[in-house]
Write a protein that binds this DNA or RNA. Structure first.
Lengths: 195, 195, 195, 195
DNA sequence: AATGAATGAGGTTTCATTCAT
DNA sequence: TATGAATGAAACCTCATTCAT
């Protein structure tokens, strides 16, 4: 019983493989093998290697896609005319990030804390902290944020966001989590406080 | 009888294996195999399994040891008589944690973000966030910290500490990092600010 | 229609494929794959199989072509009128063979000592030994060569030629090699010696 | 149904694997895979890699063993007291080599004309030509052989021996082959002929 | 208590050949 | 006649774990 061939446009086939991998890794990051991916995608083993030279290349493609997707959904917040409400913008970003992260499930560790992540670090310019730092700087210029170190504070707040998302995933009430994060960010950046 | 057997007190043997594993994992978490550990420890392969039923059991033992060690070195801050300076205590803990984390090198991801970590989550009561939450509660009762949600805030601040340590490891100046973290914690917990 | 199709006269296409294969195998007999050949020939993978049913068929075609080419360039030595100088004729053939063999590079083993060679032996009538044996017989009839067993001696002298070519390829001085071969052949066939 | 373990002394296990490989390669040099060898040797796949890092390492070990074996069976020819009969000694070596080569079957090409052979050439000092050249030199000093170039002539005569063995394997009568080779060697080396 | 040879499931990657277009 | 995406049977190699000694 031969499997009938499904001839696809290469771009489509690639998409299917990526999608299949994403679906599986979400569920159980470990234990996903090339074999599983092609089975899920309805392709043959060799087909995988037509599109990705190694397993890590697939992961890299997946990571890039996630970045693209996040950037598409949480677009540059500015573009406004009236004085921007920076704290609100920040809160918006936090919500978007938490939602995105919650939705990532198993992908996160597989892409950001695996051997893969160690071997292929995220390029500096991608990733949330850079965006967040830019936002802090802009807010500071507008007088909406206090005089904190933008880059390091951005990294730490981003880590806090990430942790908040984890907490939500582990069962904490999402409103509590969001409120606590809002409080933390508000306090961390308010211009009304100078220690 | 090629290699003479080294008969050891079981506790010593176990310690040697753990120490060997720690040394190797620090260096390169992936790529460490049972074989390497026993070679480093001067034992035979089978001996490993007299002390650890599986590889993950070794990791768990290692994680526990790290917790013990951290708790031993960063002792409960209280025990004092005069009014405690809570912010200072917190800063002390942060410094201790950063130092500890910096010194962990490859251990961190191997123990906290690997497949192992997913399969065997850290027991609630161990780990920094629990201690930190306790500290926040105590500080709040003493009027030294503002009215934030203790557990969630503890988690987020802990994540920030962790990120700070990462930043230091990646080359950021340790004083800058510590200062930024102090600022963040101070702002996040100060009682003088109510949004 | 990405690549424009190159419609060729079948004979031309076949020639191109053969030439491409020859070029590549010369360089590195192992490691040459169908994929490489079609790339080198500017054709698509499937096209290969329109001209050669299997990879071994290509090799066989290549081997035949080499035989043809050798026979064309080292033409039947006779055609003469005066008494033929048989030893000189033999030396001429040896020189031609060495030159040819030197020029074959990686082709030799790929065509004569590979799994392919085992599965498809050279037809008796092709190949140097047969020609050489004929020459020895003719020379014997003319009284120019001694009474040695023509077929076996031809095989062995041919092997010696081949070895001489190898020696030259490995860096021995071509004149030394040729001289040693001439001496061997002269001694092996001289009529002036009967043990 | 587990296969019961056969625990062997490492040297014995290695011998068994080599012997199994030799048996199979003799029969059909291509088509022999690690899997076949371990099956023939009654071992598990992983066991192979305990003894040979790669397939080519096995082939190299096999080649070395063959050399050893040949040298053991065709010992240094000298050791004599009276004037040595050099031609007879040479004929003896030729017979030994033919016998050995005939007995090698599929091993020859696998070890001397495969990709393996190209990647790991025979060390100069092993192999027949070196021994043969030494013999020619000794014979020349004793006045038993004519003034031919020893090294190149040795190579060519060795190739002739090899071809003679091939002829015998292909069905030529062994006595004819031996006689033709004797004649060739006698003529090639006789001191009574100077062209 | 200790050893280290042996196991074998698991995973990756390659490439001749097929076949839908 | 030509294309090139797709196939899937090999083959290789690794390493946690077992077990006979």
């Amino acid at each position: 019983m031969r499997t009938p061939r499904r001839r696809l446009d290469p771009a489509d086939r690639r998409r299917e493989l990526l999608a299949a991998a994403e679906r599986l890794i979400r569920r159980r990051a470990d234990q996903v093998r090339v074999e599983d991916v092609v089975a899920e995608a309805g392709a043959a083993k060799g087909t995988f290697y037509l599109y990705f030279a190694t397993w890590d290349d697939l992961l890299e493609a997946l990571r890039n896609e996630l970045f693209d997707r996040f950037e598409a959904q949480a677009p540059e917040p500015v573009e406004s005319l009236d004085p921007i409400d920076w704290p609100a913008t920040l809160r918006g970003m936090a919500r978007a990030y938490i939602a995105f992260n919650l939705e990532m499930e198993g992908l996160h560790d597989a892409l950001f804390h695996s051997d893969f992540a160690r071997n292929r670090p995220v390029p500096r310019h991608r990733g949330g902290p850079a965006r967040l730092a830019a936002m802090i700087r802009a807010g500071q210029e507008a007088g909406a944020f206090g005089p904190v170190a933008p880059d390091l504070t951005a990294r730490m707040i981003f880590a806090a966001m990430h942790e908040a998302a984890d907490a939500a995933r582990e069962g904490e009430d999402l409103r509590d989590v969001t409120a606590a994060l809002d409080t933390l960010m508000n306090r961390a950046l308010t211009p009304e406080f100078a220690p």
